[in-house]
Every structure is written in C-alpha cells, then in structure tokens.
Simulated assay, not measured.
Amino acid sequence: MPRLDVRDIPPVNRHDRIHDEFDGIAPGETLTIVNDHEPKPLYYEMAAEVPDFDEEGYEVRKDAPDEFVAEFPKVEG
C-alpha cells in the first residue's frame, strides 16, 4: 500500500504532491497519508474534485499529537 509522509513537505506543496501520488496508484489501491493534522480540507477537496476518490472508504486515525494517518482509497475500475 503506497504511503506518503507529508510532514516534511512545506504545507503549500502538500496537496499537489498528494494528488500526484494518488493519480499514480491503481484502481482499488489506497494511498496512506501521514500528516501533522487531521486532513479534513484535503478530504473535502478530494471528494469535490477527484472522481476516483472513494470517499466512503476514507478513514483517519490519530496515532500521536502530531501524527494523523489517513487512508485515501481509489475506486476500483
């Protein structure tokens, strides 16, 4: 499962990098994002703009105060 830790990426560049990574995964795969905050704005952006994003399968958990792990699944073919 592809995993991207964006905590070291400047915030202004994070969404573009995440979109690029998501575009590169196969249908049915899930991109796991590690972030320093809950990625609600990204979730809403993906839901509105990315038809291949399976928003029903989205999950997020807080593993530490500065570590949120979010699952962004891509719809199957």
Rank of each mutant, 00 (worst) to 15 (best):
Pro2Ala: 15
Pro2Met: 13
Pro2Tyr: 08
Leu4Thr: 01
Leu4Ala: 01
Leu4His: 03
Leu4Ile: 13
Val6Asn: 09
Arg7Tyr: 05
Arg7Thr: 10
Arg7Asn: 01
Asp8Pro: 03
Ile9Asp: 07
Ile9Met: 03
Pro10Thr: 00
Pro11Phe: 11
Val12Gly: 06
Arg14Cys: 10
Arg14Asp: 11
His15Met: 15
His15Ala: 13
Asp16Thr: 12
Ile18Thr: 00
Ile18Met: 13
Ile18Asp: 00
Ile18Glu: 07
His19Glu: 10
His19Ser: 07
His19Arg: 13
Asp20Met: 15
Phe22Tyr: 07
Asp23Met: 12
Asp23Gln: 08
Ala26Asn: 10
Pro27Thr: 02
Pro27Met: 05
Gly28His: 08
Glu29Asp: 11
Leu31Gln: 04
Ile33Arg: 01
Val34Phe: 14
Asn35His: 08
Asn35Leu: 08
Pro39Lys: 02
Pro39Gln: 05
Lys40Phe: 09
Leu42Cys: 01
Tyr43Trp: 09
Met46Asp: 00
Glu49Cys: 04
Glu49Pro: 00
Asp52Val: 01
Asp52Pro: 00
Glu55Cys: 05
Glu56Ile: 12
Glu56Met: 12
Tyr58Asp: 00
Glu59Ser: 11
Val60Thr: 08
Lys62Asn: 09
Lys62Trp: 14
Asp63Tyr: 10
Ala64Gly: 05
Ala64Met: 05
Pro65Met: 06
Asp66Gln: 07
Glu67Leu: 13
Phe68Cys: 05
Ala70Cys: 09
Ala70Thr: 11
Glu71Trp: 14
Glu71Cys: 06
Glu71Lys: 07
Pro73Lys: 01
Lys74Pro: 02
Gly77Trp: 11
